[in-house]
Design a protein around this nucleic acid. Structure first.
Lengths: 227, 227
DNA sequence: TCCACTATTGGACCGCCGGTCCAACGCTGT
DNA sequence: ACAGCGTTGGACCGGCGGTCCAATAGTGGA
């Protein structure tokens, strides 16, 4: 029977790393990061807590694997787009949408710069920037700028989205910001900007940021003229 | 028994929110985020654990206050610089240095977009971009791009710095990255970039990102010509 | 066919954590 | 002088991540 199958002696429904990670993702999507406990995972799998440590070293690895499972398909998809700048926008908006759907991913990406999901993002961004003409130090600088921007925005939007009904906090924040700006400049323009911040579309603003960085890369490098 | 256990309610050296936050900062600097426990704070203050909840609502507030204590002086300092672009660089490098000295701040900043420390950064960035000529939607877009970049870089560098002796992980990561890039392009240029990533100076790369951003803002907005 | 072997299982257990509760206490105002 | 009251701090709670190990059930060798 076990021609190519892993040995799965004890239970009929084999416990496997794959199944454990899937359970973790389900719990994360349903309950958020706070809901992911080893106890919850084992309960979800109807097993004891010691069992899963034969397949996963610790809870952190669960988070890392889950995040990579969400992110890695996106980079592959972006590589298929022809125009490099458009591919970068596509990759960025794909990441944004993924984090919109799975806010815990945004938090997880900030937690460790050397995790597989971040590696995948770096891989995609680097390739696309290279296609855009960036080389050497400029490639490294542009890559880190874009990656850090994307990850920073991801974490901020994810953290903001998590406190879903807490738009009172958001309003307070923006009012405080407007008040401070007005205090310094006293101008209506600043108030206007604050109101724009209040009513803005997160996704559009995120993509505008990507365009700013792309414009910066082109401008600093005199790369492919595009507009 | 009363003879020894109940020591001294109502102490001479007043327990205060200020003192508690200072103790938290000391612990965070010495032990890192993992070392900050309410038990450690109370031990450091030679008091019982219930006592501090009269001054601080919970551990999260401690972190928030501690981070703001590190960040808020920086924004005030940057406002004094005349040239707006230089002031932005100064603010950014100030934040970078602060996080280099207190890595836990980098993590904390990503945790909540509506906390005072982030408000201070937004305030400074917005004012300086306004001085640079940004207005309306452009100001909001540029502000969120810069803030998110700074916060993202802060979190990444902080997380990288935290695992201090773990440069094996860093090397593995960069080798994996180089391997993937080579796999796609096979060019020596990509390898070169990866080696640049390996040997780079984090601080210089961070500031290069700020410059890319500034170039992007100027290019998109045709704002104050500066170079 | 059968049995010993071994990897998997899962629950008891450990040392922590953050947060609550409240009796004891000694300033402080009268 | 003294009483009232706000601070104090330790006991306590439920829950956490992770370890340990006896019990078990598929598997390969005889």
């Amino acid at each position: 029977m076990t021609s190519s199958a892993q040995s799965s002696p004890r239970r009929r429904d084999a416990l496997s790393r794959q199944r454990i990670v899937e359970a973790a993702i389900q719990i994360l999507d349903a309950e958020g990061e706070g809901g992911l406990t080893v106890r919850a995972v084992t309960a979800h799998l109807s097993t004891g807590r010691g069992a899963i440590y034969h397949h996963v070293t610790n809870k952190d690895e669960l988070l890392t694997a889950a995040a990579d499972g969400v992110i890695s398909p996106l980079t592959a998809a972006a590589a298929g787009v022809d125009d490099a700048a458009r591919a970068i926008r596509a990759l960025a908006s794909g990441i944004f949408d993924a984090i919109d759907a799975h806010p815990w991913v945004g938090t997880q990406l900030s937690r460790d710069p050397f995790q597989p999901a971040v590696l995948h993002i770096w891989t995609g961004v680097g390739m696309l920037l290279h296609r855009l003409g960036a080389r050497g130090t400029a490639l490294a600088d542009a890559g880190s700028a874009l990656v850090n921007y994307v990850l920073g925005a991801a974490a901020q939007y994810a953290a903001g989205a998590r406190r879903v009904s807490d738009d009172a906090a958001r309003r307070d924040f923006l009012e405080a910001l407007a008040a401070r700006w007005a205090q310094h400049d006293g101008g209506a323009l600043v108030q206007e900007s604050a109101s724009l911040l209040r009513d803005h579309d997160d996704r559009a603003q995120f993509l505008a940021g990507v365009d700013i960085f792309l414009a910066g890369v082109r401008h600093r490098e005199r790369g492919t003229p595009d507009d």
